[in-house]
């Protein structure tokens, strides 16, 4: 191997079906990742089953008990209309997770596919795809989001669409960069000499070898998406009330940070923990998927 090799990726055998099983065992040894995984599972279960938990309604108002701190019947306190904060955080979690996962899955699929094709084929295909990527990327994303929010009907799906449109070019660029570095490698040339089809090379050889940075990107991506939704809330074009969302709650609550900190601190903690967990899980997956990262 050349001294100045850049992205040193060990060639992997195509038929490594127990690669994923190995990875699973390795993942189990990573405490942070396991805890995060369990936390996220619990969170997803919790917010999905929220209607069955017997929580107070997230929209039920009580003018007699506005902006109260934590109390036995409202353990996270109440908001500016006397609504139960815990309940709002749980129901807000539904929205935030839905947006985060929905956007990142779409972004990953679209971005990876286009990045893979562009990087692998090169030439005109590459040029065309990358011109579109550059154009989309060059367009200031916040202006784009504000525009789209003005054009689209106000719904969760509009927000998902906006964030996917803004997000995929980044994924495509990253994937293409990885593919470019990989495709000149010996094992790809070898596969080509043996007569493997382009799609086989892309999906069986290149994709698995570029997966680990993409997985890190995916975890950060979910985090980023949840944050981006919060940013849209700041602009007043996020999830519409009375549907609660973490971003919206944090933005409203930050106005009262000095007197009623619980209004922004609790949703912030919920958001931060979720984002952290996705990141830890992403790290764990990355280490697990890449045998060279194994602890000695």
């Amino acid at each position: 191997m050349a001294q100045n090799s850049i992205l040193p990726v060990t060639p992997r055998q195509p038929a490594a079906s127990n690669l994923w099983l190995d990875a699973w065992y390795r993942l189990q040894k990573n405490r942070a990742a396991v805890v995060s995984f369990v936390f996220l599972l619990a969170l997803i279960l919790f917010v999905t089953l929220a209607p069955l938990l017997g929580l107070p309604s997230p929209t039920e108002q009580d003018f007699g008990r506005m902006n109260e701190g934590p109390a036995p019947d409202h353990i996270f306190g109440t908001d500016e209309l006397g609504r139960d904060m815990l309940s709002r955080i749980v129901f807000g979690g539904q929205v935030s997770l839905l947006v985060g996962l929905g956007v990142q899955i779409s972004v990953a699929v679209i971005g990876m596919l286009l990045g893979l094709i562009a990087g692998y084929y090169g030439g005109m295909i590459d040029t065309t795809i990358m011109r579109v990527v550059d154009t989309m990327y060059a367009f200031p994303p916040f202006l784009f989001a504000v525009f789209m929010a003005a054009i689209l009907p106000p719904s969760v799906w509009s927000i998902v669409l906006v964030l996917v449109l803004v997000g995929w070019p980044w994924e495509a660029r990253v994937t293409r960069g990885l593919v470019l570095a990989l495709k000149e490698r010996e094992f790809i040339t070898a596969a080509r000499v043996v007569g493997a089809s382009n799609w086989r090379i892309m999906l069986k050889h290149i994709l698995p070898n570029s997966l680990s940075p993409i997985i890190v990107g995916f975890s950060i991506g979910i985090a980023g998406t949840i944050m981006a939704e919060a940013g849209l809330s700041f602009l007043g074009i996020g999830i519409r009330p009375p549907t609660p969302s973490w971003g919206g709650m944090i933005d409203k609550g930050r106005q009262y940070l000095q007197v009623y900190p619980h209004l922004s601190v609790f949703p912030s903690i919920a958001l931060a923990l979720t984002v952290l967990a996705f990141n830890f899980l992403g790290d764990g997956l990355r280490d697990a998927l890449d045998p060279r990262m194994r602890k000695d």
């Binding site: 985090a223 958001l271 984002v275 952290l276 990141n279 830890f280």
Partner: peptide, 10 residues
């Protein structure tokens, strides 16, 4: 990780 876990406006 904490650095990317809190929205910048908050």
């Amino acid at each position: 990780l904490s650095g990317i876990s809190i929205p910048s406006f908050a």
